[in-house]
């Protein structure tokens, strides 16, 4: 895709995503039926689950492109990594704030050492480190390499973190968290909203990702011009 193509595709997808977001809000406020066991608070899932999915997708893309950047040294891969990581932070924050809001109703406590919650929190901090490393190097090339290393170590550690938080003795206790709007027990209309929301969040992410990518390309251009001007 050319620069223009990326930008217009991004704009189109982002607009589609934003309109879709309005639809999801309308559906989950006025259309979908209320969960019999959990009541209204279950509706938080229609944004929480898609945000979680998008967050993991984004961080996954960031780690993958980081690894490929170290290997191939193509600037575009690093740009994709930083743009995806930024999206991951945005959707991760949504996930980390909406989750406890639901938990406060369902578990009667905002914070619970629930494995997935901790996993996301640590991921969030790993990518906080990613941005701090990037931002605090004199030489941007060095920052890119450092950040990629942080992302890769994080990605390699995630399976182990996942295993250990699940395995930590405290979590052998039964927990009400498994009540998720997934699986065959989910009513048809709830499933419809959830799937719509998943599609919308994913579209929105890719749209904004492309726009952010276009921005990063322009930045590189500005930097190249500055270099040419001083040389």
């Amino acid at each position: 895709m050319t620069g223009k193509g990326i930008r217009s595709t991004g704009t189109a997808l982002a607009l589609l995503g934003l309109v879709g977001m309005l639809l999801v809000y309308w559906l989950s406020f006025f259309w979908v039926s209320t969960d019999r066991l959990q009541g209204v608070s279950q509706r938080i899932f229609y944004i929480h689950v898609p945000a979680a999915w998008t967050c993991f997708l984004a961080f996954g893309i960031a780690a993958l492109t980081s690894g490929m950047y170290l290997w191939l040294r193509d600037e575009r891969l690093d740009r994709a990594a930083v743009c995806a990581a930024e999206g991951g932070m945005v959707f991760g924050t949504i996930m980390l704030t909406t989750g406890p809001l639901w938990g406060a109703i369902a578990w009667n406590t905002y914070w619970n050492w629930e494995p997935r919650l901790i996993l996301t929190l640590l991921l969030w901090f790993i990518f906080l480190g990613y941005f701090m490393v990037r931002g605090s190097t004199e030489n941007p090339e060095k920052g890119k390499r450092f950040a990629a290393v942080v992302a890769i170590v994080g990605a390699l550690d995630i399976p182990l973190i996942h295993l250990s938080v699940i395995w930590f003795p405290q979590f052998l206790h039964p927990q009400p968290v498994v009540v998720k709007p997934e699986g065959p027990t989910l009513d048809g209309d709830m499933l419809t909203v959830l799937l719509t929301s998943l599609a919308v969040f994913t579209t929105l992410f890719f749209g904004l990702f492309l726009l952010r990518y276009a921005l990063e390309t322009l930045r590189a251009e500005v930097r190249a011009r500055e270099r040419a001007a001083t040389a």
């Binding site: 809000y25 608070s41 938080i44 944004i47 949504i94 909406t98 809001l101 406060a104």
Partner: peptide
């Protein structure tokens, strides 16, 4: 809580 969560997301 539902309203706050939806507000945060948007």
């Amino acid at each position: 809580h539902v309203f706050i969560a939806y507000a945060i997301a948007i």
